[in-house]
Structures are given as C-alpha cells and as structure tokens.
C-alpha cells in the first residue's frame, strides 16, 4: 500500500518535461492518470527512482477537430472520451470503448494516452485505436515523430515509445457515419477484458462496404481481425453473413491462458463476440 520513495517533478510544458526526462536517467516513469501505475507502485511491482507527472501540462488535454481527423491529447481522460461531443459524432467506437474502462472513478482519472502507452493486452483502448489506423504523435529530444497504430504496439506492455519520449497526441481519422460497437466480455463488471472486440462498419445499400475490427486480449498486443474485415466487405447485411465472416476472428491470434479461460476458450469467444459486435455496429 506504500510505494517506494521516489523523486517527483511536475513540469508545466512538454518541453520542460523532455528536459526533466533527459536529466532523469533510466529509472523514470511518466505519470499520466496513474490508474495502472500507482497500483503497481503500491504493490512495489514498480519502484521508479523518479516520477514525472504530466498532469500539469495543459496542452496535453482535450479533443480538437483536425480536418479529416480528431486530435486527442494524451492526457484526455476516459470520462472525457466517453462524453465528448466530437468523439460521439466522429468516433463513437472510442466513446463506447472508453465507457467500459474499469469504473467511473478510474475513468475520471485514467487517460487515453496513459492506457495506450501502458499497452496492457487486456486494456480496452488499444484495440479500438488500432482499428481506426490512428497516428501516434511522440515528442522526444530530437523533436516530434509520428508512428502508425500498426507499428505502435510491440508486445506485452511494450510500445514504440522510446526512453526520453512522451506521447503527446493521438490523431484519429474520423469515421463519421460508421456504425460502431465495443463488445466486452468479463466475469464481473469491474474486470479487465477477458476478450473484447471493437467493430466499425460502413453500410451501403444493404451491404457492408467497409469494416474494421480490433481484438482485445487475443495476443500480447491488440490485433486487427483482417480476415473478418475482408470477409465482411461486400457481404449482405444479414446475421448469417456476419456470423460466417466472424468465424475467421481467431485466425492469427495467440491468446493467453489464465484463470478466466484458456486459449481455446478465448478463440471461441473472439468469434462469438466479433459476430455480436458487428451485428450491433451494423444496427441489426
């Protein structure tokens, strides 16, 4: 319950934060909403020598219209994502996924960027973001660099963010008019996803014109269910067609086995939940 002692800095700007990071050495953690970091520090599963709190950097928070995309500050909370009118209009998938994260108190503190950089395989934000083909904007000692979502998640709790870098914004293309749904499966309400499926579909005249499917907790990183996406394109808007396409959901996955179910069960769940997510997204 009591973390190890650490040094603390709360820079007011990204530039200042980068300076602090540059001087801080290796054993440093960035503190965003802290809803994953602080619990592991309390259990002393993490004991950084220094914590750099991003909570005082105003420029990292909020959602902005950026033409064909929304520019979302990394420190925007899950609660903001779930209730923001721009997101509701252009990226309802993110709103729906954010509303399922943990519990209301955690959503008030926990951040979009924090969850993405934490990259927990069972976390609810990475798969939807992957499905949107978002771009991650990183600030570093050598300036800004952009990473595509497909390249961002690299392994268990591992992303493309290097030491000394800060995720500042996520630029997410608009999917205005697409149907969206996040189907999350848990044993109790307040639980990490056992498996979850993020689905977006664009329907045109009774057929599915485009589909984007992201899978949560089906591997060490979030995955795109590309075989399902391909099978859905051009499919008629029927439950049967969606079920047939969803049978490909477990292809290329590598889920873990744990107390909540073994890999075979997770593969099965991926198919069922994909079917349900797509049906809901399509408004059937």
């Amino acid at each position: 319950m009591i973390p190890s002692a650490f040094d603390y800095a709360a820079p007011a700007t990204v530039a200042e934060a980068l300076g602090v990071l540059a001087d801080a050495g290796d054993d440093v953690k960035l503190l965003a909403g802290g809803q994953s970091l602080i619990p592991v520090m309390k259990l002393r599963l993490a004991d950084p020598a220094m914590v750099v709190d991003l909570g005082r950097i105003g420029e990292l928070s909020g959602v902005r219209d950026d033409g064909d995309a929304l520019l979302i500050g990394a420190m925007t909370t899950h609660h903001q994502i779930a209730t923001d009118p721009l997101i509701a209009e252009h990226l309802p998938l993110l709103a729906k996924a954010a509303a399922t994260v943990a519990d209301p108190q955690v959503r008030h503190r926990g951040t979009f960027g924090g969850a993405l950089v934490h990259a927990d395989p069972a976390g609810d934000m990475p798969a939807p973001v992957l499905a949107t083909d978002a771009t991650f904007i990183l600030a570093g000692p050598n300036g800004e660099r952009r990473v595509a979502a497909a390249d961002f998640f690299q392994g268990y709790f591992t992303t493309a963010v290097d030491d000394g870098e800060i995720l500042t914004h996520i630029r997410v293309p608009k999917y205005t008019g697409w149907g969206a749904h996040y189907e999350k499966f848990t044993r109790v309400a307040q639980q990490w996803s056992i498996v979850a499926v993020a689905a977006m579909v664009r329907v045109e005249g009774g057929t599915i014109a485009e589909a984007r499917i992201g899978l949560t907790n089906m591997a060490s990183t979030p995955l795109r269910a590309t075989a399902v996406e391909q099978a859905l394109v051009g499919a008629p808007l029927t439950r049967e067609a969606i079920a047939t396409a969803s049978a490909h959901a477990a292809e290329g996955t590598d889920p873990a086995s744990d107390l909540n179910g073994d890999a075979a069960y997770r593969r099965h769940l991926a198919e069922v939940l994909t079917k349900r997510a797509v049906i809901a997204a399509a408004g059937l």
Binding site: F185, R187, I194, N260, G261, D262, Y265, H268
Partner: peptide, 8 residues
C-alpha cells in the same frame, strides 16, 4: 460456474 467452465 465461470463462463469458461460452463462453455467447456
């Protein structure tokens, strides 16, 4: 009776 046990 967890979901995985019921399914199994």
């Amino acid at each position: 009776c967890t979901p995985s046990r019921v399914w199994a």
